[in-house]
Nucleic acid binder design. Structure first.
Lengths: 211, 211
DNA sequence: TTTATAATCTAATCTGGATTTAATTAATTT
DNA sequence: AAATTAATTAAATCCAGATTAGATTATAAA
């Protein structure tokens, strides 16, 4: 029997990136399957060969973005750096990831709400179940991501490196500021991702270390 | 000739509030004119008596939200408080506005992208022109809002109250954290708006005043 | 009361996509 | 070559929702 796929054509990841781009520019509602397809020189219909439907496509975009974010943050948390160093690195990598690929960053911020309205996603079939599961997993991962910041702050307080703050709220504030970068960042602006990251680190670490 | 409107029924503001609520829950795309109408016991068709179309309705929601925000922040900026006091008040009122009406706050954060895609908004007629103008005005007001934070920070640096930071980036960070509150805030959570505001103030002012 | 207009409604329209279907065109393996 | 599956496509289908049309009802002013 013959097997292996035809090694030509567009890759799943190309589509995800294209989708993220269009999504950033137009938002979910305004984004057409046709728009996405056009970016990779395909027909809307072709996308259905790679993804079950529009909802799954969006989900995949966001899943990938989050996974990448986790992948770069996780090792830092597990390292044996002290809390300040960890947080510094975490902010850096996160912000640089966002500015390095604003589309995905913006999608992560903006399109999450689209996830909630289960809308279509597979009427009847087991698709719907799969969708819900993956979405829930996404939210768990998202919590996990946030928790890494929270715990790092908490441990910094425990060791006396940081002053007393509410770790949860402080973490959310940091993430808010960081995510927001994806909203306003302009590659042609005054600062690059690295510089912005430095300023955020400065802002928050200075606050945490003040006595 | 007879004149004055019938003083019965639903008010424009009721609709705007309803729209903001639905918008927060479902996002623009998933929000149906019917959904909005239902909240105020009207038919989708009836909404067209109050708003030109869906785009204009959304625009109105966001315009109102921003105007309210400006209205409460502006007098603080113009007062003769010092920079720290101003910033403290500004954050407080802003965060409390957000937590007091999460729907509008969230709409302001999330639905802005929908504005950009001119999509429909009035095909041909002068409606389109009006839409563009109002949208541009909205963005100007938005800049103005941000500028108030930026300038307050800048003047605090000038007077030596604050340490040297980049006012633009610092302002964006603050706004990011504040806007983000609208995303995660839960009325049944551990803290109320007032308390959250205090923590944010603490975070940022501590940073600004550290030496 | 009569009249003009506001506020609504019900019943069409209309249309833009999303999704399906039924081919067609590669690659890959044996 | 033959067989099998991947990748695409053009052409149809389908339908939810926005918008429009044509009444109907309520109110205020004269």
């Amino acid at each position: 029997m013959a097997r292996k796929p035809a090694e030509q054509s567009v890759h799943r990841d190309d589509i995800l990136q294209a989708a993220a781009d269009v999504l950033q520019e137009q938002g979910y509602e305004a984004t057409t399957m046709k728009d996405i397809a056009a970016r990779v020189n395909l027909t809307a219909a072709s996308l259905y060969h790679h993804f079950k439907n529009k909802d799954f496509l969006l989900l995949a975009v966001i899943e990938r973005g989050l996974q990448e974010a986790i992948k770069i943050i996780e090792p830092i948390v597990q390292s044996d750096l002290n809390a300040s160093e960890k947080l510094t690195d975490m902010v850096h990598t996160h912000v640089e990831a966002i500015t390095g690929n604003p589309s995905v960053g913006a999608a992560l911020v903006f399109e999450i709400k689209s996830l909630v309205s289960v809308t279509t996603a597979g009427r009847g079939s087991g698709d719907e179940l799969e969708y819900i599961e993956r979405r829930d997993k996404f939210f768990k991962d998202r919590d996990y991501f946030e928790r890494m910041f929270r715990e790092t702050i908490k441990s910094g307080i425990a060791t006396g490196e940081f002053r007393q703050v509410d770790p949860a709220i402080f973490a959310k504030s940091m993430l808010g500021a960081q995510n927001w970068v994806g909203v306003w960042y302009n590659p042609n602006g005054r600062f690059n991702g690295q510089e912005i990251a430095e300023m955020l680190v400065d802002t928050f670490l200075t606050s945490l270390k003040a006595r």
